[in-house]
Simulated scan of single mutants.
Amino acid sequence: MSTGGGGGRAPLSEINVTPLVDVMLVLLIIFMVAAPMMTSGVQVDLPNADAPPMDIEPEQMMLSIDAQQRVFLGEAEVPMERLEEALRTNARLQEEDEIFVQADHTVPYGFVVRVFTAIRAAGVESVGLVTDPLSAPDQPAAPTP
């Protein structure tokens, strides 16, 4: 009888998944807590409007105009003279062909029109306007006859 060397036993080849599951659950909790903190954007005081709320996904392309008339594509500032080029060369925008525009309510109308002209010149067909429907001002009462 031989007592050494392991005889006819095969090596144990099972993986213990318990530590893997523990690590994955901890990572899931960390990302669930950290995800809302990562959604920072350009601070814009949106105009009030009596409009139904739009569902805007956080991953959708957003163009922002702040009160100092600076233009941001996502969170990256883009000079106005390079806006059309930046829009035309943005692969994600050309693939989705949709952009949402949010502008501070103090931005002059003419500047917003220049931005829309650059968007159209870049070939973007679908443009959405973002407003703040929650704080819509009271509508003036209609005159009574």
Results as ranks from 00 to 15, higher is better:
114 R>S: 01
61 M>Y: 13
48 N>M: 14
104 D>L: 10
55 D>L: 12
120 R>F: 06
83 L>C: 07
103 A>P: 06
68 Q>T: 13
50 D>V: 05
127 V>F: 03
92 R>K: 08
56 I>L: 15
52 P>H: 08
76 A>D: 13
74 G>H: 01
100 F>K: 07
69 Q>V: 10
106 T>C: 06
106 T>P: 09
119 I>Y: 01
3 T>H: 15
140 P>V: 04
32 M>V: 09
46 L>M: 06
132 D>C: 01
67 A>G: 03
24 M>T: 00
60 Q>H: 11
15 I>D: 12
87 L>V: 12
101 V>Q: 07
100 F>A: 12
72 F>L: 04
48 N>W: 11
133 P>L: 01
41 G>T: 13
19 P>T: 02
31 F>R: 11
132 D>I: 02
93 L>Q: 04
128 G>W: 01
26 V>A: 10
114 R>F: 00
62 M>G: 07
100 F>L: 11
83 L>S: 07
88 R>D: 06
115 V>L: 03
29 I>R: 06
108 P>M: 09
134 L>T: 12
93 L>Y: 04
43 Q>N: 02
122 A>E: 07
30 I>C: 12
128 G>K: 01
13 S>I: 09
68 Q>R: 14
64 S>N: 10
71 V>C: 08
108 P>W: 05
96 E>W: 02
89 T>K: 11
138 D>W: 05
69 Q>A: 14
69 Q>Y: 10
56 I>K: 15
43 Q>W: 00
120 R>N: 11
70 R>M: 02
139 Q>S: 13
35 A>S: 15
71 V>E: 05
95 E>M: 06
17 V>L: 15
48 N>V: 13
85 E>I: 05
74 G>D: 01
59 E>Q: 12
83 L>N: 09
11 P>I: 00
106 T>D: 12
114 R>M: 00
4 G>P: 11
145 P>N: 01
50 D>E: 09
94 Q>P: 02
1 M>A: 04
46 L>N: 05
98 E>V: 08
12 L>M: 07
17 V>S: 14
142 A>S: 10
100 F>V: 10
111 F>S: 02
105 H>V: 11
32 M>W: 08
63 L>S: 05
42 V>R: 08
89 T>A: 08
33 V>Y: 05
139 Q>D: 04
98 E>F: 10
57 E>I: 03
116 F>G: 08
85 E>N: 06
23 V>D: 01
52 P>T: 12
119 I>S: 03
129 L>R: 14
66 D>V: 03
62 M>S: 08
111 F>D: 01
143 P>I: 00
67 A>Q: 10
62 M>W: 08
70 R>C: 02
127 V>E: 02
143 P>Y: 03
145 P>F: 00
3 T>V: 12
39 T>V: 04
23 V>I: 08
120 R>L: 04
125 E>V: 05
67 A>C: 00
113 V>Q: 04
112 V>A: 11
124 V>T: 11
136 A>C: 06
47 P>F: 02
145 P>G: 00
1 M>L: 03
87 L>S: 12
119 I>G: 02
133 P>E: 03
66 D>S: 07
36 P>I: 05
84 E>Y: 12
18 T>G: 00
30 I>N: 03
77 E>T: 12
74 G>M: 00
95 E>V: 08
106 T>S: 15
103 A>I: 04
96 E>Y: 06
